[in-house]
Amino acid sequence: MPIIESTYKPSFYFKNGFISTVYSGLVRRVSLKQERERITLKDGDFLDLDWSFSNSKSNKLIILLHGLEGNGQRPYMTGTANHFNNNGLDAVCINFRGCRGENNLKYYSYHSGETEDLHAVIQHAILSKNYSEIYLKGFSLGGNIILKYLGEHHAIPDQVKASIAVSIPCDLYGSCKELHKLKNKLFHDRFLRDLVKHLKEKQKLFPEELSIELINTIKTLIEFDTIYTSKAHGFRDALDYYKKSSSLQFLHNIKTPTLIINALNDSFLSSECYPVKEAKRNPNLYLEMPNYGGHAGFVDKKNVYYNEKRALEFINANF
């Protein structure tokens, strides 16, 4: 598909990518009533799902996936859920394994290329909740999971009608290199602090898998992925994990109408994370590259973000 020309024009201060990213992550507030459901996965582990509903009974659902070390209560998740609830769709925010204050039951947890848990939630929505129209929206890591899922699976359920991916590091190694640069040190260090904190908690449950001494050697995100993420999830090392989990290589095979929104001033994304060639060659893939927005920071009027409006517009235009 041709590249979509973006109409996003934020106010002066939010044209700064750093400001829009930090404001959206730390300052924004969204009020939303959610109901928690815990489902058991086929390996015996669990996922916590946070549901919110439209005012009238709906057979339409949007499934939302958060980013690295996020959860179902992050404002970029609840903001989308609230906007869709107000427009006649139910919403469910997935909390990835171990991401809602309680350790999951396995040594492994979640990662950028883990798509089976998403598939399990989709099946749950179809078989147990009877939704006939399902839409997917993911942010950052969660968006990469959606794109990989749609491109690698040969039998996407008919109920899955469209997807939206926002601020997507579709080339994981390229994005990782950006996060390790000085410009992103504050973000890098915050991600690393939270990841190491949670890994230390997990180590207490699985001391035979990993020593606290080895955890204490972790100083970068790449080292974290080398020592834990790759080994826990069956990859050779961090680079093997990035290579096999990046959604970029799967974009050509996506048959579900999909919108990618990646801001040009997103400091987390490398040039490879703007899949212009892939979008032009795939009639199901739409790429929008606003000049502004930072990383998931598309601030707009009345606390409804631009990406939230565009997601609903995209769905309404296609269905």
Rank of each mutant, 00 (worst) to 15 (best):
R28H: 06
V166I: 15
H153K: 12
Q123F: 11
P157M: 04
D158H: 15
F139H: 12
F96Q: 07
C93I: 07
K42F: 11
S54V: 10
F84K: 08
E69K: 02
R36M: 06
L68I: 13
R36A: 05
E152A: 14
E37C: 08
R36I: 03
L141K: 14
E152T: 15
F53C: 00
N87K: 07
E102P: 14
V30D: 04
V121Q: 02
S52G: 12
R97M: 02
I62L: 09
G101M: 01
N86Q: 14
S132R: 05
Y107N: 09
G88K: 09
S140D: 10
K60T: 08
F139S: 09
S31Q: 03
Q159L: 06
C93K: 08
V121D: 01
D43P: 11
G70P: 03
C93P: 04
Y110H: 04
R38N: 10
V166N: 06
K33Y: 11
E152F: 11
L41F: 00
G142R: 10
T40W: 04
D50N: 12
H111L: 03
R36E: 03
H83Q: 09
A125K: 08
I126H: 01
V27S: 15
N95F: 01
H111M: 02
N87H: 04
P157N: 04
I146M: 05
R100P: 10
E35I: 11
G67Q: 07
I63R: 03
M77S: 11
E114R: 08
